[in-house]
Design a protein around this nucleic acid. Structure first.
Length: 570
RNA sequence: UGGGGAAUGGUGUAACGGUAGCACAGCAGACUCUGGAUCUGCUUGUCUAGGUUCGAAUCCUAGUUCCCCAGCCA
């Protein structure tokens, strides 16, 4: 009588539904071929990661393949530096295009032949209008456009002119090849769109061979068709272009992939447009494309975000056609979730405060055992040196502790993690500034390892390092790049760059870390207990003196409590 | 006053005429040698107005709001 528990049927997103329906209808003979088509004019960012995960992920789920294709039709903006970085980033994210690496520029000759075909069909013409004139003729959103005076040139004349455009006889911008569609269409993209412009620019792959370059619309669908793409997945702003995508393919009578559009990723407290990211780089508002504050994959890699975490994030946020803004906490959560399981724990003091254990023998060094990862026993243990002089975190001591403060204060006993219970006996201050410079404590030898034989408890456990054994390191703390969550809220006329968070980077010198970290590999990730996840900066670290980037902080519930207290109590 | 899209808690995303679920955030608690992790519980939602139906987030009608489009960028 009792139904067996229903098997989990994972819900499909709308693209998966389309693909499942296509598969069931045998629409493409069961074949699935997607593509990721970046333009090599900038570095990949987390928004691209979403697209990569969708395209490569869908191919994997449906037993198909995904191509990598560079959409390199605008030589004035593109560069091999970007081509290389893009390939590196896609691989780093965990995807592989095998031998399916393509370039739109590989298809320039074929595209040219097809353009000639359209001219012969009377469906394309050479137009001598200037850019301004083309705009004037296009009409407006509400008013139809006017036909170009060159619209009815003979096929022979068009053929001749187009060949001479290709041959470089005319100056840049002087003529275009346009599709002959309908200047009265309510969709502006259909009002005789430009297929080719004259551009005597050196292309990173074809050199100076071409001086006419295909526009996006003319190149994209045909490139998809050449590669026998089944599902051409792109972002929402191309929805208006789909009729044109379909028109070209139909007029040419070519293999016709299906274009499907989804909402691009927006994240709070950052920007995602390549134009703005480029501006941040060239304007030196950040330290480059791989600045750990950047939403680029290069930046996230350097910051310590694991690729698995980014992939999980992309799965979590889903795919839909609703414009959305994902909260940064979702990404941070995915990063913490991944690192919690994998990152070895270490003790590191970021803002050191000297502690002298008065009753600990001078010169004596003890070796204490510490667990490398409580989430994963197989990661084992390590030894930590303990001595009379230590450093603890400045923030773990308050001379006048607020209510609910568990850490060290005068007369209070706390546990030093994996070591001993210590009690604060006196405070040394700078006579001039009043700043606390040193603490004197006593320890209870019976609590070695961190447990009291008499069963007494302490509220707080704090981290520490032995002053004589610790290594010095620079630690870079990162916060949101912008002060406001949604840059679309910047009032018109105001510069979004004035909203850059001045505390997005805080550099700490003289941090004290447990000695084992001296030999940490560049790029390796650790949890500094009670503080966060940190990654050895692969660029600025030197052997023996690593630089650490804070990947993400640990959740800090005390900070939250204290914030609440301040708000309430004033 | 054109065309194309989209509207489900604070933020995302499910539910495909039959109990509005999940994640993140928030709140409260348990546990803890990380104020971490983990575990409980809770608050908050179907854009509006009509209609169809035993029953509507879902179907119909009208409206509202938001996004995209007037590059020889992609």
């Amino acid at each position: 009588m009792t139904q067996p528990s229903t098997p989990e049927t994972p819900s499909l997103n709308f693209i998966q539904e389309i693909m499942a329906a296509d598969r069931d209808a045998n629409k493409w003979s069961g074949r699935v071929n997607t593509r990721f088509p970046p333009e090599p004019n900038g570095y990949l960012h987390i928004g691209h990661a979403k697209s990569i995960c969708i395209n490569f992920g869908l191919a994997r789920e449906f037993g198909g393949v995904c191509n990598l294709r560079f959409d390199d039709t605008n030589p004035t903006k593109e560069d091999v530096e970007y081509v290389d970085s893009i390939m590196h980033d896609v691989r780093w994210l965990g995807f592989d295009w095998d031998d399916r690496l393509y370039y739109a520029s590989d298809y320039f000759e074929q595209l040219y032949q097809w353009a000639v075909q359209l001219i012969n069909k009377g469906k394309a013409y050479v137009c001598d209008l200037t850019g301004d004139e083309v705009r004037e003729h296009r009409g407006t959103l509400t008013a139809p456009g006017k036909n170009s005076p060159f619209r009815d040139r003979s096929v022979a004349e068009n053929l001749d002119l187009f060949a001479r455009m290709k041959a470089g006889e005319f100056p840049d911008g002087s003529r275009t090849l346009r599709a002959k569609i309908d200047m009265a269409q309510p969709n502006l993209n259909m009002r005789d769109p430009v297929m080719y412009r004259i551009l005597k620019a050196e292309h990173h792959r074809t050199g100076n061979k071409w001086c006419i370059y295909a526009t996006y619309d003319w190149a994209h669908g045909q490139s998809d068709s050449i590669e026998r793409i089944t599902h051409s997945i792109c972002t929402l702003e191309f929805e208006n272009h789909r009729p044109l995508y379909d028109w070209y393919l139909d007029e040419l009578d070519l293999f016709h992939p299906q274009q499907i559009e989804f909402a691009r990723l927006n994240l709070t407290y950052t920007v995602m447009s390549k134009r703005r990211l480029l501006e941040l780089v060239t304007g030196n508002h950040v330290r480059g494309w791989d600045d750990p504050r950047m939403p680029t994959l290069a930046g996230m890699r350097r910051r310590g975000y694991p690729p698995e975490a980014i992939r999980n994030f992309c799965t979590k946020i889903g795919v839909s056609k609703t414009d959305s803004m994902i909260e940064m906490s979702v990404l941070e959560g995915a990063v913490r979730d991944d690192l919690n399981k994998k990152a070895p724990r270490v003790l590191g003091v970021l803002r050191p405060l000297k502690v002298v254990i008065d009753n600990y023998p001078e010169g004596q060094v003890d070796e204490l055992e510490a667990i490398n990862n409580p989430e994963d026993e197989s990661m084992g243990t390590r030894k930590l040196p303990f001595a009379r002089e230590l450093y603890i975190e400045r923030d773990d001591f308050r001379e006048d502790p607020p209510k609910g403060y568990y850490r060290l204060s005068p007369g209070k006993e706390v546990r030093l993690r994996y070591a001993y219970f210590v009690t604060c006996k006196s405070v040394v201050k700078d006579p001039k500034t009043g700043e606390v410079t040193e603490l004197h404590c006593t320890y209870d030898p019976a609590t070695r390892g961190g447990a009291a034989p008499d069963g007494r408890k302490v509220q707080g456990t704090i981290h520490w390092v032995s002053a004589g054994h610790a290594i010095d390191a620079e630690v870079r703390l990162y916060d949101y790049l912008f002060r406001i969550p949604d840059l679309a809220e910047v009032p018109p006329g105001e510069d979004y760059k004035s909203y850059i968070n001045p505390e997005s980077l805080v550099v700490l010198q003289g941090c004290k870390l447990e000695p084992g970290l001296a030999k940490a590999e560049p790029g390796s990730r650790f949890q500094f207990e009670r503080q966060g996840y940190f990654c050895v900066d692969p660029v600025d670290s030197k052997p023996g003196t690593p630089v650490f980037n804070r990947t993400v902080s640990l959740k800090d519930s005390w900070a939250k409590i204290e914030k609440g207290q301040k708000k309430k109590g004033g």
